[in-house]
Amino acid sequence: MSKQHLPLWEVFVRSRRGLDHKHIGSLHAADAEQALLAARDTYTRRQEGVSIWVVRSSDIHASQFEDEDAFFEPAADKVYRHPTFYDVPEELKL
């Protein structure tokens, strides 16, 4: 069994200019430069992107499943944040 531990990196690819980078997967590499090269070979062999970001997985902090209600439930009863809540004649293009 290997004793060397290569850290995990998350890979984000911008498929074309004007779009956000989107998470596409992860890989192991010793540093950022290796991670970028490996990401190119792993995730963009068919011109899937024009730009790659790599971020150490340990640098990503995520909300927890148990926090789901506390985080997101309060938005559930605020229908007035949506345009359809308001009564205006549709033909006026508001």
Binding site: Y80, R81, P83, Y86, V88, L92, L94
Partner: peptide, 9 residues
């Protein structure tokens, strides 16, 4: 878009 609609309402 809701900002303008609520104002008009």
């Amino acid at each position: 878009s809701f900002h303008q609609r609520q104002g008009y309402e």
